[in-house]
């Protein structure tokens, strides 16, 4: 399978008429507030280095104003960086010509937006074919492909409706179908589920995970919601004031928050749904009748042990070999006590 990882290198974005001029100052430590007060320029992103893994979900998390939406727009260059590189399949997206960029956007990326950004004058099906229409795919084929994805996101029978006849959740399904119909390697999701109410948001997350399990796209997912980040992200980068303050797997972030800001953030997180059995398992001893597959989360492990009445369980790998063991006590310990850091 092709390597569809995205590498963001030394990316800076300074908004204003002459951002380049202040790069050196920012590199030498000028703060966002100083830059704004003294020079009227706004620091968007500062020294971003993220290696987004191929075929995984990379979450970029941050509160509003942290630069996360600016970040994602550099990947399809809806925003030009002040300096820096975004490398995909050996090519720097920031250096592409207009024509190349257009081709790149048509074939390599698809995007889902927070406010859906559907075309209000087009029906659901005509919205879904939009990307293929721009690519010049013939009518029959684009119709078939769009119908396939509409049905995959659960919109059978709504093809001829207009977007504003649909609820927010359904509109975003159209947005997702529109992006998937493009069949691009990169799926960019800019707070895609943030405008939806909690139940529908969970629903959409499940749909995304289900589809990702078979599609293996490189997904870049922006969110301000830590639970969402932990549920979806294979990798998470946390942004604050335009800087990456920590990146790693959800487990790494929960177990070893980089600073007090993040520690504060993760206080309320349900650890049982983040930490995996592998993290706390001890050497295999074969002393239990129940087995738990590797990579399971603690909540599931605890549940299995409680249901079977066992105080211990074996961890097995994909081939069924025992690779470790956990006790109910250690599982509950890890779920309730903040880990040392």
């Amino acid at each position: 399978m092709a390597d569809n990882s995205i590498e963001v290198k030394n990316l800076y974005k300074i908004f204003g008429t002459n951002g380049k001029k202040y790069i050196e100052a920012v590199k030498n430590g000028m703060s966002k507030d100083d830059l704004n007060a003294k020079h009227g320029h706004v620091l968007g992103l500062k020294n971003i280095n993220i290696n987004m893994p191929s075929a995984k979900i990379q979450v970029i998390m941050g509160l509003s104003g942290s630069g996360k939406s600016t970040m994602i727009r550099h990947i399809n260059r809806l925003i030009d960086p002040t300096i820096g590189e975004v490398i995909f399949q050996g090519e720097d997206i920031c250096k592409m010509s207009k024509g190349d960029l257009q081709e790149f956007r048509r074939h390599k990326t698809a995007m889902v937006f927070q406010k859906f950004a559907l075309l209000p004058h087009r029906t659901v099906i005509d919205n879904t074919i939009f990307g293929l229409e721009l690519q010049g795919v013939d009518k029959k084929e684009r119709h078939d492909r769009a119908m396939h994805w509409l049905s995959r996101v659960g919109l059978d029978g709504f093809e001829e409706n207009y977007p504003n006849q649909l609820s927010g959740g359904m509109q975003q399904r159209v947005g997702l179908a529109r992006a998937l119909t493009n069949d691009a390697d990169i799926l960019l999701m800019d707070e895609a589920f943030s405008a939806l109410d909690p139940l529908i948001r969970m629903d959409m997350q499940s749909i995304l995970l289900e589809l990702q399990a078979e599609l293996h796209k490189t997904v870049v997912f922006i969110t301000h919601d830590l639970d969402e980040a932990l549920r979806l992200g294979d990798q998470i980068a946390i942004l604050r004031d335009g800087e990456v303050i920590q990146q790693g797997t959800g487990q790494e972030i929960v177990l070893k928050p980089a600073d007090a800001y993040i520690a504060d953030f993760i206080k309320e997180v349900n650890r049982g749904r983040v930490i995996r059995v592998d993290t706390i398992m001890t050497a295999a001893n074969g002393g239990s009748s129940i087995t738990i597959p590797t990579g399971s989360r603690l909540e599931l492990a605890a549940k299995l042990m409680v249901e079977s009445g066992e105080a211990e369980a074996n961890i097995i790998d994909d081939a069924g070999n025992a690779i470790g063991a956990i006790t109910l006590k250690s599982a509950i310990d890890a779920m309730v006590t903040p880990a040392v850091h």
Binding site: L78, E103, T109, P120
Partner: peptide
């Protein structure tokens, strides 16, 4: 015309001409 919709057209790789005829003029 809604900036969000225009951004979506850009993100899907619409040429200026396509943007004019599929998004701007109809809206």
């Amino acid at each position: 015309v809604d900036k969000d919709v225009l951004e979506a057209a850009d993100a899907f790789g619409a040429s200026p001409r396509q943007k004019l005829f599929t998004v701007q003029l109809p809206l």
